[in-house]
């Protein structure tokens, strides 16, 4: 039998043990969380049998409904805005000859990925306070603006990767065949970019849906997204309702990841 020579991590002692341990640590809590969302009792630690009661009570909870709606709305709007901006940014950074300072531009676009989130949150808080001071507007739009902004780099990454992998002669061929720049974009660039755009939008959507830190700092009085509502609940009585909400959020995320994965597979 031909064995590959050289270092093979799988052959190291303890490899399997460490791997299994890591997976256990990562997934046991999540599995427990999902399990206890079906708990018939009010405790999040003592199992009292299977029931849908927390899903039903969550469904009936007006506050949860309101927070869920805001979360969804926020995720849809901010991922749409962020993705549009990201497409433009990706086009501008890939469809041109290398230029001086392109690393700087790249770093600036991806700034929210590198700066600690709490710093961005505080900065936004102060910045919006300033605007509030001058305009007097204290509504919910700030949250939408903040989410749209910090989702840009997450949408930008897959779109840029897709654009860089795209054969430039395709666009040349289209313009050679009488396609005006706008029609070349619509008929060739956009359709080929579509999987990247979808991936970017979904990533932005999940990031927005999941965000706590920035949302907590920026949200208007009485405004709550699902994550901030849950955080608020944890400060008072903890019921398996939180588990139920988490499980639903988890289901959405997992679905997104699967769709993303399938799209990527199809591309290859």
């Amino acid at each position: 039998m031909a064995e590959p020579k050289g270092f093979n991590v799988k052959k190291q002692h303890g490899f399997t043990t460490i791997a299994v341990l890591c997976f256990l640590l990562l997934y046991t809590p999540i599995i427990l969380l999902v399990l206890y969302s079906f708990n018939a009792g009010t405790s999040i630690a003592i199992w009292e049998g299977f029931s849908w009661r927390w899903y039903i009570s969550t469904w009936g909870n007006e506050q949860v409904k309101e927070a869920a709606l805001l979360s969804l709305w926020l995720a849809i709007v901010s991922s749409a805005v962020a993705t549009s901006v990201a497409v433009l940014a990706a086009l501008a950074t890939t469809r041109r000859a290398p230029y001086k300072g392109q690393t700087v531009v790249f770093a600036i676009i991806n700034q929210p990925l590198m700066v600690p989130e709490i710093v961005t949150a505080v900065a936004l808080l102060i910045f919006f306070a300033l605007i509030k001071n001058y305009t007097g507007y204290t509504g919910g739009a700030y949250l939408f603006i903040a989410h749209s902004a910090f989702c840009v780099p997450f949408a930008y990454m897959p779109i840029r990767a897709r654009l860089q992998g795209m054969d430039l002669t395709l666009e040349q061929a289209a313009s050679d065949l009488y396609g005006t720049p706008l029609r070349v974009f619509r008929k060739v660039t956009l359709p080929l970019l579509w999987p990247g755009i979808l991936a970017g939008a979904m990533l932005a959507f999940v990031i927005s849906l999941d965000d706590v830190v920035i949302t907590e700092f920026v949200k208007a009085a009485g405004q709550d997204t699902l994550p901030t509502y849950m955080l608020g609940q944890l400060r008072r009585v903890v019921t398996p309702e939180v588990n139920a909400i988490s499980t639903v959020l988890l289901a959405i995320s997992v679905t997104m990841v699967i769709v993303y994965f399938i799209l990527n597979q199809r591309k290859n």
């Binding site: 054969d167 002669t169 395709l170 040349q172 050679d176 070349v184």
Partner: peptide, 17 residues
């Protein structure tokens, strides 16, 4: 290019996938 009555066959064909 899109206003020239000239068409190109590219080395890598550049067919739209």
């Amino acid at each position: 290019p899109y206003k020239r009555p000239v068409n190109t066959v590219f080395q890598n064909y550049a067919l739209f996938p």
